[in-house]
Structures are given as structure tokens and as C-alpha cells.
Amino acid sequence: MSGDPIYTEMIIEYSRNPSNFGKIENPQIHRHDSNPLCGDSIDLYVNVDGTKITDVKFDGKGCAICMACTSVLTEMIQNKTLDEVKNFQKDELLAELGLEHLIKTSPVRIKCALLSLKALKYGIYSYFTEKMNDVKAAGNLKEEAASLY
């Protein structure tokens, strides 16, 4: 199985030792999401200072793809502003792990890869609309999250 297009060393490593794995008590953004068909289930926690992300963690259970992608996502958004993160695209995340091909080759597994990004987009949407009362800032995040895969 050398040269496996999905199960690279990096993905196996992340699945064994996920980054930012844990929980933030009383976070400003918290979103739970799951893939009912395959059983990936994660909670994403984000703290912000004004509009800058100061801390990100996640916990839950998932496959290697889900664990690796969520790990990478939490690494990528650390210390970014919400405005930057808002426009974060799925291709950027997938490219980081060399998983762009999943969009075409595996409509099932792409859900594992993008679950955390979906949770993040929904989470930021709720933060803007519910905590900041700023519907304008929330933009199309909800629709984007819903149509991610």
C-alpha cells in the first residue's frame, strides 16, 4: 500500500496524535456536528478576543481523515481574524493534506474531510448572529456551510 493517495504518513500521524485535541470550558464559539452515516462526531471550541481567534480546540471521535483534517484546520485558523477565517475555502484545507482528489474520487469520504470546516462556518455564523447581533458580518456563512458537501 505504499503511495496510498489517502492514507499518507501525515494523515496516519495526525489520526494517532491529533493537534489541539481537548476542550475549552465556556468557549465563545462551540459547535457540535456529526456525520450520521459514518459516525464521525466532533465538538469544535473557539475563543476570540474581539475578532481575533485566540484559542481553538476540538474533541470527539472520527476516522483518520476526519481527525487529520480537523487537526489541520485548528492549526490553520489559530491567531487568524474571524474575517480571514470566514472566507477560508475547502480547497485550502484539503490541499494542506493532499486530499483535493477526494472531491472527485470519494463523495462519501469528503464528508469526513470537511466536517470540521462545516462546524466552523456554522459556529462563526452563530457567533455573529447570536452574540454580536451582526447579521451583516455573518454573510452567507450558513448557506456556505450547508452546501459544503
Binding site: M1, S15, M67, R109
Partner: peptide
């Protein structure tokens, strides 16, 4: 995870 097993 079982989905990784099934995919492989």
C-alpha cells in the same frame, strides 16, 4: 476507524 478500514 471503520471507515478507514472500509476505504482501504
Amino acid at each position: 476507524h471503520p471507515h478507514d478500514v472500509a476505504t482501504i
